[in-house]
């Protein structure tokens, strides 16, 4: 019996191993590349998996001291935090109305939000580029803070509505009967109960905003105002020369915040991914 369960475990690990290697290899490769000396990095005779001449922090130092990378990190943090905060507030109100209140056209509204949720950013970036210049916010961080909620709010609304619907209504109803307003009930009763859902939604929102690429690439042209995704991809490459050590150092450093958040809140991510996906 012991033998059969051990065999099952070995089979499961053997099945998982190629997938784990496939998933993590690019990140391992970023790390290896980012700590190797240029001389060894570009020497075809060397084994690319090793660092025989020792590791170096030169690429990281270059990144932080001679490029706008620290600014990009700051810009990304600013944009991601503010657009996520705004989106969660808007989405929470909308989700509460959809999950709890009865009104005409409720189904129409949720269909509308669902359609916008599916609408890819690549469909809208051209007209939005014109819109942000009409609003005189082109080439500022505001162009991103204002436009990111357009794809974050539908997604978070969808997620939170599913979450709120699963919370029992009794407490809230007795509060309403006792003369509490809807907003009061939302703040005092629903908010504490929905905290795990709100944390999940916030994490997803932040991850989406931090990773966003096409708007950041399109709306902002000044190097010092770029977010980290557009900055590393576009501005770290000078002419036709690729500085792979610094590029990989940048890609790894900029991936780190979301990956760390992810590992800290693994269960939230997993539950959110499944809840969000089953619903949409």
């Amino acid at each position: 019996m012991v033998g059969s369960s051990a065999r099952r475990a070995i089979l499961a690990y053997a099945g998982a191993a190629p997938f784990v290697v496939f998933a993590l290899f690019p990140f391992v490769w970023m790390l290896i590349t980012s700590v190797k000396k240029d001389a060894e990095l570009y020497d075809l005779a060397q084994n690319p998996f090793l660092a025989r001449t020792g590791i170096t922090w030169e690429h990281y130092r270059f990144l932080f001291e001679h490029t706008a990378f620290p600014l990009w990190l700051r810009n990304s943090a600013l944009v991601a935090v503010s657009s996520t905060a705004a989106s969660v507030v808007l989405a929470l109100l909308a989700a509460y109305a959809l999950a709890r209140m009865r009104f005409r056209y409720a189904e129409g509204v949720s269909t509308f939000i669902f359609v916008v949720y599916l609408m890819p950013t690549t469909l809208l970036f051209l007209p939005l580029a014109r819109l942000v210049s009409l609003l005189h916010i082109a080439n500022t961080l505001w162009s991103l803070i204002v436009t990111y909620p357009a794809f974050m709010v539908p997604f978070i609304t969808w997620m939170l509505a599913a979450y709120l619907a699963a919370i029992p209504k009794d407490l809230e109803e007795s509060a309403l009967v006792d003369g509490c307003t809807r907003l009061g009930a939302l703040r005092r009763i629903v908010l504490p109960l929905a905290r795990p859902g709100i944390i999940t939604a916030t994490l997803f929102g932040f991850t989406l905003a931090w990773s966003e690429f096409i708007y950041a690439l399109t709306f902002i042209s000044t190097t010092s105002l770029k977010t980290v995704t557009a900055g590393v991809v576009v501005d770290l490459i000078r002419g036709d020369i690729f500085y792979w050590g610094s590029l990989m150092a940048g890609a790894l450093t900029a991936s780190l915040p979301v990956v760390v958040l992810f590992s800290l809140f693994l269960d939230h991510y997993v539950s959110g991914l499944t809840a969000g996906a089953v619903k949409g």
């Binding site: 998933a23 690019p26 990140f27 990773s211 991809v233």
Partner: peptide, 29 residues
């Protein structure tokens, strides 16, 4: 099986990391 939670976490990383940046690693590879 024991440790499956960590395996699930590991295979999810490509989905969490900013796609534009991880594709940069593929470009290099």
């Amino acid at each position: 099986v024991p440790g499956m939670k960590w395996i699930r976490g590991a295979v999810l990383v490509p989905w969490v990391a900013p796609i534009a940046l991880s594709v940069l690693a593929w470009t290099w590879m």
